[in-house]
Amino acid sequence: MPIIRMIDGINEVVGRIVSIVAIVFAGIIIYDVSMRYFLGEPTRWAFDLTKQLYGFYFIMLGGYALRHQSHVKVDLVTERMAPQLRRWVEVAGYLIFFFPFAWVFARRSLDFAITSYNQGEVTYGAVQLPVYPLKIAMFVAAVLLLIQGASEVLKLVLNTTTHLDSKEPMDVR
């Protein structure tokens, strides 16, 4: 289904791009440690910047993790169910738990981002970095998570989902 491929593709691209941020903040940490211990000149900006980059990295990978079923699942009850019943229990779980959470996450993070931008919010550290880009990223991450949830539910309903015991695609039509 084109909408599933589009949503999965968006989260795949975002996940791969955002994964580069881990390399960037690791490089900044190495640079800061080197400056501090070898040259006795610690940076004033590295700690605040790496905190923000890590927050960005962590929050933006939610949709990517859901796409690859890498999130935490408590499937003690559903693991013994027949695949057909398990699929419908998972759909119910998305409708009862996931979508309300993702909606609140998106709505509240949008409010946080707008307020942060309007106030010109900055960090409290030695170097005052703007906070609104991270809060905007929270909203974008919430939207990516929400649409990936929709993709996962469509896969379950249409029965074109990852087989529950493996990572290989299954199409039972």
Rank of each mutant, 00 (worst) to 15 (best):
D32W: 00
H163M: 05
Y117D: 08
Q119C: 08
M6N: 10
Q84F: 13
L49R: 00
D111S: 11
L53C: 01
V104L: 15
G62C: 06
F112W: 05
V89D: 10
V104Q: 12
D111I: 11
H163V: 07
I29N: 06
D75R: 00
Q84G: 09
L61I: 15
I114H: 09
P130S: 07
Q69L: 11
S19P: 04
R86A: 14
G63P: 02
V153S: 09
F58E: 05
D111L: 05
P83H: 00
Q119H: 13
A22T: 10
F112T: 11
V153Q: 04
A150F: 03
Y132L: 07
V122N: 10
E152I: 06
L146W: 00
G15A: 05
Y54P: 02
Y124R: 13
R5M: 08
E79C: 11
G62Y: 01
W88Y: 15
Q128N: 11
A142F: 03
F25I: 00
A113L: 02
I4D: 10
E121V: 08
D48W: 01
V122G: 10
A137L: 04
F98S: 08
F101C: 11
V33W: 02
E79F: 07
A150Y: 00
N11S: 05
F25C: 00
V104F: 15
F101G: 14
M1Y: 06
H71D: 15
K155R: 07
P2A: 11
R5Y: 08
L144E: 09
R80M: 11
V21C: 03
Y31Q: 06
H163C: 11
R107Q: 13
R86Q: 13
R87N: 12
G125L: 03
D8W: 03
W45S: 12
L134R: 04
M35S: 14
V14N: 05
V172I: 15
M170E: 15
T115I: 15
A106D: 03
A142G: 15
V33L: 07
V21M: 02
R67V: 06
I23S: 10
M60K: 03
V143E: 09
Y94M: 00
E79I: 12
W88G: 10
W88S: 13
P2S: 12
I30F: 12
G149R: 01
T160S: 14
L144T: 12
T78H: 06
T115L: 13
A65N: 09
F98H: 04
H68C: 09
A106I: 05
A65D: 07
V24H: 01
V104E: 11
W45C: 08
A46Y: 04
Y54R: 02
V140S: 04
Q148L: 00
Y124L: 14
F105N: 08
G15F: 03
E41L: 12
F112N: 07
I10P: 10
D48T: 02
F112Y: 12
N11E: 05
S116V: 06
T115W: 04
L154G: 10
T123D: 09
A102Y: 00
L49K: 00
